Computed example of a mutant assay.
Amino acid sequence: MLTRVCLFRSLSRTMALSAAELEARSVEADKIIQTLTEKIAAIKAMGTLPANIQETILKQENSQLRKQVEALKTELTTLELRNGKTQVALPKPPKKGAAKKEAPKKAEQQEKPKNENQKKDKPKKEKKEKKPQPAKAAEPEKPVDVSRLLMKVGKIIDCKKHPDADALYLEQIECGEDKPRTVISGLVKHVPLEEMQNRMVVLLCNLKPAKMRGIVSEAMVMCASTPEKVEILAPPAGAVPGDLVKVPGFEGEPDELIKPTSKKAVSVFEQVAPGLKTNDKCQATFNDVAWEVAGKGFVTSASLTNVQVK
């Protein structure tokens, strides 16, 4: 009993000590319990008390001592918290059997690389070599000549001055298509408005549409031109809107669309234009070969000979 009282007093004093010192005291208490256990065992060996009684007494004493130690620890923690002392949680001892569970996991982790190596060692499937496809034959370049121009006979069905430009006419021209084409021409200074009405003309139809003063022009009226005078080219008698204008000897297919001249390239029309002229008979020609509507005759100007056509 004296030993128990001394232990209790010793544990009470730990309330004023730090958490580390309390832990040390707790260890000492465990040693005292172990010493008591050994003494009881010695007493049992001497046969002073029956074995079952000695064991019961030992268990009761151990239980009481542990309860007292836990109560003192709890009280000390409460006092330290009140005084603003930070508590540090001590690591808990590993549970029995935890090591056994971790062992299989480690074994699995060690096995994984082997499996991965086995996968790597598997022979890869050979890729089938693709048979080289024959290269597409390059399309032959078209000659730069009048065959690249799509020219049709047209008829002006309406003409008026451009609403935003005094020098331009705004025309609606029938050329054998689903609807008339809108065309803008700079002819105000050269052809009176009354002479533009219901007039037969030759249209260059595959120029890229261009906006002129806010309105898109979809074709160009072909004219014989000098700095002083401009005359609209006239189709042969009997020609109707939609008839094609061709130049014998130049039978290639016209471009779908002729792009305008840019910094990168000169347009097809600009390259062909030097060969477009009228001859001594006022006939429109390309490289001295007259334009014609098949079976109907030649395209002509009213009076201008040996001048540029544009």
Rank of each mutant, 00 (worst) to 15 (best):
I232L: 11
T37W: 08
L22I: 13
D145P: 03
G84H: 10
M212I: 15
C223P: 11
L276E: 04
G275M: 09
K155E: 08
T74Y: 10
E61I: 15
G249C: 06
I57C: 10
A135E: 14
K67M: 13
G186Q: 00
K211F: 03
E55W: 02
A135R: 10
V221A: 00
V272L: 05
K155F: 00
F8K: 01
E111H: 10
L276H: 03
E218G: 05
Q133C: 00
V221Y: 01
D255R: 02
A234T: 14
M222R: 07
K155D: 03
S217A: 08
C282A: 10
I157L: 03
V201K: 05
C6F: 12
L304K: 00
D166R: 04
Q118D: 12
V293N: 02
K161N: 13
K128R: 13
P163C: 03
A45P: 02
V289M: 01
L22G: 07
M220I: 03
V88D: 07
C282F: 00
N206D: 01
E70H: 12
T35M: 10
K136M: 04
F269R: 04
D121G: 12
K120L: 11
H162Y: 06
T56W: 02
K277D: 00
H190N: 15
E218Y: 11
T278L: 09
T78M: 10
K189V: 00
A29H: 00
E171T: 11
L204Q: 04
A302Q: 14
P132Q: 10
K229A: 03
L149Y: 01
S267D: 05
P236L: 03
F250S: 07
Q118S: 11
T35S: 11
T182N: 01
G214M: 09
P134I: 09
M1V: 12
F298W: 02
V5H: 10
N287A: 09
T305D: 01
P274A: 03
S147Q: 02
R4G: 07
F298Q: 08
K119C: 02
A284I: 04
E75A: 13
A294D: 14
F286D: 01
L2P: 06
S18Y: 05
T278I: 10
E75G: 09
C282M: 06
L2W: 09
N206Q: 06
L90H: 08
C159Y: 02
L207K: 06
V5L: 13
K296V: 03
M220K: 04
A239Y: 07
A29T: 06
G238V: 08
V5S: 13
P163V: 05
A302S: 13
V289W: 08
K310T: 12
N206V: 10
K259E: 14
P180L: 06
K310A: 12
L244G: 07
A29M: 06
A89Q: 12
V202I: 15
P254F: 04
L150M: 13
I32L: 14
F250M: 00
T56S: 13
A16D: 14
K92R: 13
K59F: 09
K124Q: 12
L36C: 12
K112C: 04
N279D: 15
P241A: 01
V221K: 00
A16N: 11
T78S: 13
L90D: 08
K125Y: 03
N62V: 14
K161Y: 03
I184Q: 03
K211D: 08
S217Q: 02
A219Q: 01
E177I: 03
E102C: 10
D166E: 15
G214A: 04
V272P: 06
M220Q: 01
R13G: 15
I32H: 06
K114T: 07
I43Y: 02
